[in-house]
Design a binder for these strands. Sequence first.
RNA 1: GAUUCGGUAGCUCAGCUGGUAGAGCACCUGACUUUUAAUCAGGUGGUCGUGGGUUCGAACCCCACCCGAAUCACCA
Length: 500
Amino acid sequence: MSDNETTHINEEETTHINEEEIRLQKRETLIKAGKSPYKYAFNKTHHCQDIHDTYGTITHDDTIEETVNIAGRLMAKRGHGKAMFGNIQDGSNSIQFYINVNGIDADVFETVALFDIGDIISITGTPFRTKRGELSLRIKQSDLLTKALLPLPEKYHGLQDKELRYRMRYLDLIANPDVRKTFKKRSAIVSSIRHFLEKDDFMEVETPVLNNTYGGASARPFTTHHNELKQDLFLRISLELPLKRLIVGGFEKVFEIGRVFRNEGVSYKHNPEYTLLELYQAYADYEDMMSLTETLLSELVKKQTGTYILNYQGQDLNFEPPFQRYTFEKALKDFADVDMNNYEALFKKATELKLDPSEGISKGTLIMDIYDACVESKLIQPTFMMDHPWETSPLAKKHRDNDTLVERFELIISGMEIANAFSELNDPVDQEARFKDQEKARKSGDDEAHVMDTDYINALKYGMAPTGGLGIGIDRIVMLLTDSHSIRDVLFFPHMKDKP
RNA sequence: GAUUCGGUAGCUCAGCUGGUAGAGCACCUGACUUUUAAUCAGGUGGUCGUGGGUUCGAACCCCACCCGAAUCACCA
């Protein structure tokens, strides 16, 4: 590559070909010249952020002796004849570089001149501050590590098209630095939850995703097939039943952070697969779970924001414990003006609300339908909704003071269900009766009713200690903490329909 | 599933009442030794989501479909 014939693109050859073809030609030229455009490794001494941290205070008059090696993606290039500026971005940050023909091999200048935006390059150079005051690297050496064949999105607006951003998240991450921040934060949140639980002696476990049956929630499953065993299998819809079997087995504090799969609609707060945290603690009840939830979330918010106040979509949410509490009885009175102990009144209310209650609908279902219609979306501040009707909670223990209720709570924030917990039902006789009740509901058309799990009943027959259980929707927590309106913005690869 | 909005160059977007398809960025050529959305001059680049229809003529009007977004419904 010592002469211009092999390096400069001939105008006549390129006027009618696209950018990818131009770059493919550069790739060919490099390979023919024995310079691979796909190197094997590079020994970095610094990330861009390290240079900002170390040399952030130098002035235009300072001379730095240290030479640094960095590598990353070329994001911008500004040629000035015999000088050139550009920006390189790595996983930490980006930094400007500068090169001019003085005191440098012509080869190096030519190499840099031939880089295309999007190429992954290395730079060896010395930090300095430009006249205009920007911390930069003066290039001594530079190399192409990976050739990029496709041009990047527009440098100023980035990639805006939501469909492209979700379908080609890699490009979104390159072009939109805020997106990377969101996902770094997601990682930090999960890590901080994990450490919180480990510090509290919870043991992290893994249970199967593929199961012979499914349960622990009311949802339709995804079904798949094992060829060799000639049997249908289900992707889990929750983590609950295997984890409670571990409590039977003698572990006292377990948790799992795992993907669950629900064969239901897609919306700004629903994705067919999402991440659930479930934890179970022996010798605890739902009051203990409430305190744990308050501590976990308030500490998380404090760690992320420095206060208990979190601004979400323009509203300040206050996570200072204790969170407000509402029983279903009081909520239905306050928000729907109906007595939840009066079946006729509930039925009348549901009819007024055009919920179209069917003949013989259970009181519990009426209560939940009215709650969904009148209450949930109005609960903005962190609120524990507690003491649900027993009929819609087949895995929760009856309330100690009222056997038409269960000891259960859901945590609602900004109208979204964030957590769900019970004093776990551990009476196998009651559990079996509840499952049979669910089977009846299933037969009368409720395809989300819980299915019978005889092995789980069997496990309970050996005795499960009194247990508190808690489930938290990780994606929704991340939505709150990153002020994301849609669950798609906190999933790297949200589910998208196939393009034809 | 319903309603509304959107799909035009690689990206960000204009395109009026139906009359030859536009700009900026990127790219190519040239100029330029401290710029930073660099600048200046000149260029390349289009199956206007898909398929029908109306019309002398459709990016534009009509119908159907595909994909996406928002709101609702569904989803404890």
